[in-house]
């Protein structure tokens, strides 16, 4: 009988393979209380974030801590669910969508994919609108585990050749694989996902970039749809403001605006041409290093 230790030190035994949803339902009330009175959306199992649909592992003792909306430790899980929802929305709106990988990032998520026609920035609002509908419907993510051979059949049945290739190569060591289903959307996925997608408070699809399948320039070209997701609108707004400020400070923009440097394809990529004001800036830095630091302590040399 696995024993669960909670954050307050109390312990309790559970029948083998009890779902974490039930464990957290009977856990002691968290201290301090979560920001909004709400149900847990995920849990930490021995410090690792897992979904509430996971069963207790066959170990003697484990620690479990429920995660609520607003907990920064639940952000990666929430963002991964947002990535799925984005893929689901894209598949509703576009034909022939083939999915690749959809991981979380430091401030959100992305999903690599390709469709019959390229997705553009103008499509993002429609995708966001579809995502909002999906989130409002608040359908649970259902986990399904199947043996490898069946997993391959499933992804081929879903017309997902990239996923099929990954199962046969990168995932060759797995004898069983998991999928997550939400409504009509089924995706090969290790998880975890949040118990209730309604907890995705605020998100935005930020941009589309190019990517290669498995990062190899010889492979298929895909589109990488980036998004950022937060538990509250305030956090999203603050993040977007910071991104805007960062864009404003981009040295390539400022360098051009302030006549500091330029580049020229004729001279060559990756070679900086310092303009007079930039050269003064650089020269001042060099003089500082030379006068204050090098000359008192070192000897100079020049080499070709």
């Amino acid at each position: 009988m696995p024993t669960v230790r909670f954050a307050d030190g109390s312990v309790r035994d559970y029948p083998a393979a009890t779902r974490l949803a039930e464990v957290v339902a009977t856990a002691p009330a968290p201290q301090p209380a979560p920001r909004k009175q709400s149900r847990p959306i995920a849990a930490l199992l021995d410090g690792r974030a897992v979904g509430l649909d996971m069963p207790l592992p066959a170990a003697d003792t484990v620690t479990v801590e429920p995660l609520f909306a607003g907990d920064v430790r639940a952000l990666p899980v929430m963002r991964h669910s947002a990535a799925h929802i984005m893929a689901r929305a894209v598949m509703r709106l576009f034909a022939g969508v083939e999915l690749a990988f959809g991981p979380t990032t430091g401030d959100g998520f992305y999903y690599d994919m390709r469709a019959t026609r390229p997705i553009t920035d103008d499509d993002l609002p429609a995708i966001e609108e579809e995502m909002r509908r999906i989130i409002a419907a608040d359908e649970a993510f259902e986990r399904v585990e199947v043996p490898r051979a069946q997993a391959v059949e499933i992804v081929r049945g879903l017309n997902q050749p990239l996923k099929a290739e990954h199962i046969e190569t990168g995932l060759a060591a797995h004898s069983t694989l998991s999928f997550y289903r939400q409504g009509e959307f089924v995706d090969l996925c290790r998880g975890p996902h949040v118990a209730s997608p309604g907890c995705i408070g605020a998100f935005k699809l930020t941009n589309i970039a190019g990517a290669y399948w498995k990062g190899d320039a010889n492979n298929a070209q895909l589109q990488r749809l980036y998004g950022t997701a937060w538990f509250t609108q305030e956090e999203l707004d603050a993040h977007l403001a910071a991104l805007e400020e960062a864009r404003r400070r981009d040295h390539r923009v400022l360098g051009k605006q302030l006549d500091l440097f330029t580049t020229s394809p004729l001279v060559g990529s990756g070679l900086v041409l310092w303009m007079p004001k930039g050269a003064i800036l650089r020269g001042t830095l060099e003089s500082f290093v030379r006068e204050e630091l090098i000359t008192p302590t070192a000897s100079s040399s020049r080499s070709p």
Partner: peptide
């Protein structure tokens, strides 16, 4: 003196820890 009288505002670009690398 190479004085810096106006310290620049640091940008608060918040990052949460990314999920541990999973293979699928």
């Amino acid at each position: 003196r190479r004085a810096v009288r106006h310290k620049p505002k640091p940008l608060a670009v918040a990052t949460a820890p990314a999920a541990a690398g999973d293979d699928y």
